[in-house]
Design a protein around this nucleic acid. Structure first.
Lengths: 343, 343
DNA sequence: GTGGATATCCAAAGCGCTTTGAGAGGAAAT
DNA sequence: ATTTCCTCTCAAAGCGCTTTGGATATCCAC
């Protein structure tokens, strides 16, 4: 059943070369011959062996990503959503991914292995940290890559796609300040990730411009699961002087925070304002919250698609994309933000 | 920098054969020679080219999965969680996945392509439907595969891992009946998927054994996103004779349902009971709901790991696993279930 | 010392594809 | 008729690895 090039050529009474050329769109082949070849491919169900193709061309038609994983580590819903974007775009070009799971502390070795294996044409990086060692490493390995996010410090000349996290949280904070809030809490992502650091910076900057400082007691860092949103919020509310507004780094965190607020008997949008960053997760829409959530929005899925486009474009040598892109998140005001109480 | 076998052999003053054998653990190589080779590998950072290896052996050391995707289709959080399980196990054996995105209506062709490409040793299947055409197809292609879930109808002799959905929802329904509930609603997954059908069957069976029938008006099918849980529940509550209990096919659906119940001013566990199926999604734990959720629990991630184990075991010819496994979901009673009101 | 194991190692043949460098044939130009 | 230039096709090399089928050397027993 499974035919290979040689057999196909035999059936057609042609040489492998000609068949190969006909298939790969080389000009020096008769239109009629090409048709015959294509017809035979249809009839036999011939599919080129990718491994052989790869060995011959050096191209793998696939992009590699390292999936952070370990027995204790929770799967990240954001990762899945991003993947969906990558996938959506890749399918158009008949590309696939090679997903290489790896424990975080083994990530460097995994990258090295992946790059050397010849299994992938390009790599994708995320979960950037300050002075991320993977960037110089990949540059040294001279394999194309695109980063989702940005490192902080270290070399600056690498291809990335990021959203302007500082700006987003600056905007959000400013809105709260204008509404009269002074005690603003932040339920942020893990403190070792670059985006968290930038978001906090945005908050800090807005507060300082307003003549206020950050209250470190009102800043929590954690993995983005609703459980932590709940705990952090509960913690904040138990303070002698609780915040009147809270910023969440994800709608998932907001989910927990909202629960804590409800349980405390407070009204969202009047007693306390909530703003979350919305990655546009289809299963958790801010407009569906009991009180629709004000958000800074930027589609993770769109980012995935865009990165796939750039990566693939780079591989097949088509398209010329900017090396560095910084998307601005949109501030969308809904009912969860209102004037500070007592004003 | 990137050394290949030939160069490595040259450096060592050995033939490629010997080096290859030393690396692959063949017995006919001197222990001392093997050490020398391994040392050289360490020094040079030699990595075998997978494509070449694949071409020579026919083994790809990777398993393929088709990721259902399309511009309009939402990413499924359950998919990500399952993937995490697969990954966790695969990383131990240095396997990776080839993720092939595909539009649902193109799935068959994608499978065929994937199988013929030689890129993968085995395939993984999920989102089973009744009489799923992919099963006979893969059998015909004679490529190893394992199904997560089970089809309904069609051939029965194929390798799968499933949870006993009928049993799980039978158990859950029975609990509700024992608590005195008679009007029991079901917010189920998509009606074209086998697991949904089985879950409904479990509910039906329990009701019938109790001398009751299913009220089709109280059964909704939808994608598993909180939005639909909310809508369905709201819909049920607006009926003249609303249900006193509801079963949800996912904690994600329950999230929406709970919101609708809260909004209606009803108390969970007394006015209305809720049971959800819990796939053990780390970002959404039933014990963290404002009223902890009674659930039927079965870890999606564990299923992923188990399937990876079986798939990989089959490929490297190690281990002998049962072809078919049916896991039983655990019924865990929490505060969201209580006696039917007025009893 | 000779035949037969045993232990080590090697040359070479693929695996299925792309691609280089040429050859064959015909049309156009001289 | 010869040369030049296309157009179309082909044989063969090579991608980096595994594996078959020896070759060589060593060692034992008889």
């Amino acid at each position: 059943m499974a035919v290979n090039l040689k057999q196909l050529a035999e059936i057609l009474g042609l040489s492998q070369t000609t068949v190969s050329r006909a298939l790969n769109g080389y000009p020096e082949v008769n239109a009629e011959t090409r048709q015959r070849v294509l017809q035979a491919v249809r009839e036999t169900g011939y599919r080129p062996n990718r491994a052989a193709q790869r060995l011959a061309t050096g191209k793998a038609y696939s992009i590699g990503l390292v999936m952070p994983i370990a027995p204790g580590i929770d799967s990240d819903i954001h990762f899945g959503e991003f993947l969906a974007g990558l996938a959506e775009e890749s399918v158009k070009h008949d590309f696939h991914f090679v997903l290489n799971p790896s424990a975080p502390d083994d990530e460097e070795a995994t990258f090295r292995r992946l790059a050397a294996s010849g299994n992938v044409d390009a790599l994708f990086l995320a979960y950037m940290r300050p002075n991320d060692p993977r960037i110089p490493m990949l540059k040294a390995l001279s394999i194309p890559f695109v980063v989702h996010g940005r490192s902080i410090g270290g070399p600056r000349d690498y291809p990335f796609l990021d959203i302007d996290n500082t700006q987003a949280f600056y905007d959000a904070t400013k809105l709260l300040l204008q509404l009269g809030h002074h005690r603003i809490a932040l339920i942020n992502g893990p403190d070792y990730l670059a985006f968290s650091i930038r978001r906090k910076k945005g908050v800090t900057r807005a507060l300082e411009e307003w003549g206020l400082g950050v209250d470190e007691e009102l800043v929590h860092h954690s993995v983005m699961a609703d459980e932590y949103g709940y705990r952090s919020m509960q913690h904040f509310l138990e303070r002698p002087n609780p915040p009147t507004a809270v910023l969440c780094s994800s709608t998932v965190l907001a989910l927990g925070a909202v629960r804590a607020i409800n349980r405390a008997g407070l009204a969202i949008g009047s007693d306390i304002s909530v703003i979350a960053h919305d990655d546009v997760l289809p299963m958790l829409k801010p407009e569906n919250f009991s009180v629709p959530l004000t958000t800074t929005r930027s589609s993770l899925r769109a980012a995935g698609a865009r990165i796939a486009t750039r990566l693939i474009g780079g591989i097949i040598g088509r398209g010329d994309y900017p090396e560095q892109e910084l998307w601005r998140a949109e501030l969308i005001v809904r009912a969860s933000t209102g004037p500070a109480p007592g004003r």
